[in-house]
Design a protein around this nucleic acid. Structure first.
Length: 269
DNA sequence: ATGACATTTGCAAAATGA
């Protein structure tokens, strides 16, 4: 029955962004998530693995094709597709030949263009890391402009390391000096949205109060002291197919969890 | 707050994160 629905495209696609904070340490959680939720597409960030250390066999055995863009020690992104092989379109972000961080991977899967994005954190502020963050947002915005011009369904999924609004954080005061909440970070994100992208989770919950990240420190999970930094931006043609968005929050509370929870959007066929 | 907490590298303690 599932195959029939899939073949005729009658089931909505579940597209997920999940910062795993180390794919080796998180592999049991990830495989469990794939088996339980059966998402169609999963964009991973912070795999913290070199290309040859990526657990491709385990992921294939779980029924997922995969592309990955790794880096030793930190960063690293991947795109998984259930019963499909994602077709690579872009590896790395243009606009800076000096930038050797693995933070951007773009593919086509099930007729949708999907990007897995790991935008720089940018702390401390001010400093070179914050400058890099702001430049990176600008470079992403350039790529996003080209993608919009294709007039196709596109989902820009990832850890943006930007808290867009005051109601996207448990405490404005606690985070006010952080790179995630600086006016320049927010302005960059707003300029990207203003091209014509739809923030899927914001559409689902316009009043805010939905978190995707809870720090490991200071009992943040226990206190529900989180914020929203994992975003799924939809091109107009993808937004026409919007069928809901949410956070699979319970995975944040499990043993050896990532500090991020899987965040998803559903697109109608 | 030079903090907390977690992961990786590499085998101690530094780098990185948010």
């Amino acid at each position: 029955m599932r195959l029939w629905h899939q073949f005729f495209g009658l089931t909505a696609l579940k597209i997920v962004t999940y910062n795993v904070n180390g794919i080796k340490a998180r592999l049991p959680r990830l495989l469990e998530y794939l088996a339980e939720q059966k998402p169609d597409v999963v964009c991973l960030q912070e795999i913290k693995s070199a290309d040859d250390g990526f657990p491709a066999d385990d992921i294939r055995e779980a029924g997922y094709g995969a592309l990955w863009h790794g880096q030793k020690g930190f960063n690293g992104v991947a795109i998984l597709a259930r019963d499909a092989e994602p077709v690579e379109r872009h590896r790395g972000l243009g606009g800076d030949p000096e930038d050797d961080h693995s933070r951007y991977l773009e593919a086509e899967v099930n007729g949708v263009v999907v990007a897995s994005i790991y935008l720089p954190n940018g702390n401390p502020v001010p400093g070179p890391k914050f400058d890099y963050k702001l430049r990176w947002i600008g470079r992403l915005t350039e790529r996003a402009r080209d993608l919009l011009a294709e007039e196709r369904p596109v989902v820009l999924a990832g850890d943006y390391n930007v808290i867009p609004n005051d109601d996207d954080v448990f405490s404005v005061r606690a985070m006010q000096d952080d790179a995630l909440m600086q006016p320049q970070s927010r302005a960059g994100f707003r300029a990207l949205l203003a091209q014509g992208w739809t923030d899927a989770l914001r559409t689902q919950a316009p009043g805010g109060g939905v978190w995707t990240f809870w720090d490991y420190q200071a009992g943040a999970w226990r206190r529900d002291a989180g914020f929203r930094i994992d975003h799924l931006l939809l091109s107009p043609i993808a937004a026409d197919r919007f069928a809901g968005a949410g956070v699979d929050k319970e995975y944040r509370g499990r043993e050896k969890a990532s500090d991020h929870a899987p965040t998803w959007v559903r697109l109608r066929p």
